[in-house]
Design a protein around this nucleic acid. Structure first.
Lengths: 153, 153
DNA sequence: AATGAAAGTTGCATGAG
DNA sequence: CTCATGCAACTTTCATT
């Protein structure tokens, strides 16, 4: 799908505030609310807009530890199954297949280091095809946006 | 702030759909809409809810390449300044301070490999205190959630 | 594809329990 | 803290251009 300037204005507004009223977006973009409504429906239908999410502070949920776990897997064992099992873990937030020495990088949230150890030993290291892992612990995360910024140009 | 079962139900509903009407959340949680409204205001005020975001498919915006760039910096040069410059780059989506051989990991979206090279050479490698970097290119990203799942238990 | 108007929902403030 | 009520604001549909 090709995005025009109006589509990008709508997306940029929703990146600022995902619950912004369509009427407010319409005002910003200089069109009628009904137009925004129709555009948004098309963006949804085309898969450009996948959905809307709430941004919750992980600390408030009791998660104080973020870690990036690099995982090497036996690719012969069926990568899909491995990925699906990882994605089904509530504490797993991102799974990427990457180039390089490791095959996957998995972003994990844990309540504390004890919980992290438990996740690693009893969950991540037990997924199908697991070979070994290397973990980087995040001290702070100054930026955690969701998706690249839309340039409304 | 301490979250009770109702708070978690509200957050879980908003994780499914960040634009879900408060009335629908109220029905799911078995309370009045006004109650949800008040709880949400408190969750916002307490910083538990940081905001709402739209989840846009990066491919639709023309970003086909995702990369995790590990960066080693001269910490004496003022880490805050380094982080701020990175966070100001629109193509930068996450910045984490990590333990280990590198100091930062930066998640970047690029239109293509040419754009990635440009970002690395003309932007990331020019931030204050930059020493060296190592880049992992993401082939696919089967899971990209935003925050750990709230368990409504 | 965009609009304005109409009809149906929803959000929000108030006051009461 | 939770809820019921009422009004303002918002979303959605549809006929029109």
């Amino acid at each position: 799908m090709v995005l025009d300037a109006l589509d990008r204005k709508i997306l940029a507004a929703l990146q600022e505030n995902g619950r912004m009223p369509l009427s407010a977006i319409a005002e910003r973009a200089g069109v009628a609310p009904a137009t925004v409504h129709e555009r948004l429906a098309k963006l949804r239908a085309a898969g450009v807009v996948r959905g809307f999410e709430v941004n919750v502070d992980p600390h408030a949920l009791g998660y104080t530890v973020t870690a990036l776990v690099h995982v090497r897997v036996d690719l012969a064992a069926g990568l899909d199954k491995t990925v699906n099992e990882l994605a089904a873990i509530p504490e797993v937030e991102e799974v990427h297949l990457i180039t390089g020495e490791y095959d996957l990088v998995v972003k994990v949230r844990a309540r504390d280091t004890v919980h992290l150890q438990e996740l690693l030993l009893t969950r991540l290291h037990k997924v199908p095809g697991f070979v070994r892992s290397a973990t980087e612990v995040c001290l702070t995360s100054p930026l955690e946006r969701h998706g690249p910024l839309v340039k409304p140009d």
